[in-house]
Simulated scan of single mutants.
Amino acid sequence: MNQTKVLVADDDPNVCEIIRLYFAKQQIDLVIANNGKQALELVEKESPDMIILDVMMPEMDGFEVCREIRKKWDTPIIMLTAKEEEFDRVLGLELGADDYMTKPFSPRELVARIRAIFRRLQPRERTEEDTLQTLSFADLTIDIDKREVIAAGEKVAFRPKEFELLVHMARSPGSVFSREQLLEQIWGYDYFGDVRTIDVHIKKIRQRLHKLPYECIHTVWGVGYKFEVDE
């Protein structure tokens, strides 16, 4: 992760200093914002490779900043929250955050999550499975090379992880995946995150495919999810 630039937006100077010291050892360039408004200005000015947003900040909170960033950029975002309520974590993911961490956290785990997100975004070596670049079902076409989804005759925009999750499941119709399996296979790390991350993204996929005359992502109660189309 040589010369990676990370923007950290947090009004707690102690948190920023801990991150600064650890990032320096990891060869990560750090840009610090002390409030939400400044964070947005620095995203525009610095074009960071990763953004870390504290939920509770002056000027604009982390949720507002995340919402504004997603209007223009796909830069990966990790949310920081000192709260324990599920609402905060799920809302962040629904607004487009890629991951979240609850304070207090270890800088080592933060860097591990950053690395995991970057690994997921990097092109991987082609496998035999990748030779099939278009997945076609009734009223649904997934063009893997172009990263396009056509549902009921209309192009549907997907965020990166939503698309990867859909492709992963659609490659194996009828196969049941546990939330833990999907978290590890799509996010690229072993259970650092909350399995409810999967539920949030499945919900978003279903919403995006709402014009299909059928449900293609099915819940397997007590296990996880499967992709299946009755053609």
Rank of each mutant, 00 (worst) to 15 (best):
K83Y: 12
M101L: 15
V111Q: 01
A97E: 13
R113A: 04
L91C: 08
F105K: 06
D98G: 12
G96T: 15
L93Q: 13
A112D: 13
L95E: 15
L95T: 14
F118V: 00
D99M: 10
R108K: 13
A112M: 11
E86V: 11
T102F: 02
Y100L: 06
F105E: 06
A116Y: 07
E86P: 07
L93Y: 13
F87T: 04
L95P: 15
E94T: 11
F87E: 06
F87V: 05
I117W: 02
L110Y: 03
S106C: 03
L95R: 14
V111A: 00
D98W: 13
F105Q: 07
L93E: 12
K103V: 06
F118Q: 12
D99A: 14
F118G: 00
G96F: 14
D99Y: 14
L91R: 07
M101R: 08
I117Y: 03
S106F: 04
M101H: 09
D98I: 07
K103P: 12
L93W: 13
E109A: 00
R113I: 02
Y100Q: 06
T102L: 05
S106Q: 13
I117D: 02
E94A: 10
D88Y: 10
E86F: 09
T102G: 04
K83T: 05
I114D: 02
Y100A: 05
E85P: 02
D99R: 09
R115T: 05
M101F: 10
G92S: 14
L110V: 00
I117R: 06
L93H: 13
E109K: 08
D88E: 12
E109M: 07
R115M: 01
E109C: 00
E86A: 11
L95G: 14
D98T: 14
R108Y: 04
L95I: 15
A82G: 15
R108L: 08
E94F: 08
R113G: 01
E86G: 01
V90Y: 03
V90F: 04
A97V: 11
K103F: 09
K103G: 09
F118K: 12
E84H: 13
G92T: 09
P104I: 07
A112E: 13
I114Q: 02
E109R: 05
G96D: 15
A97H: 12
K103Q: 12
A82W: 07
E86I: 11
L110K: 01
E85W: 04
A82E: 08
K83H: 14
R89K: 15
L91D: 05
M101D: 09
E94L: 12
R113N: 02
R113C: 02
K103T: 11
I114L: 05
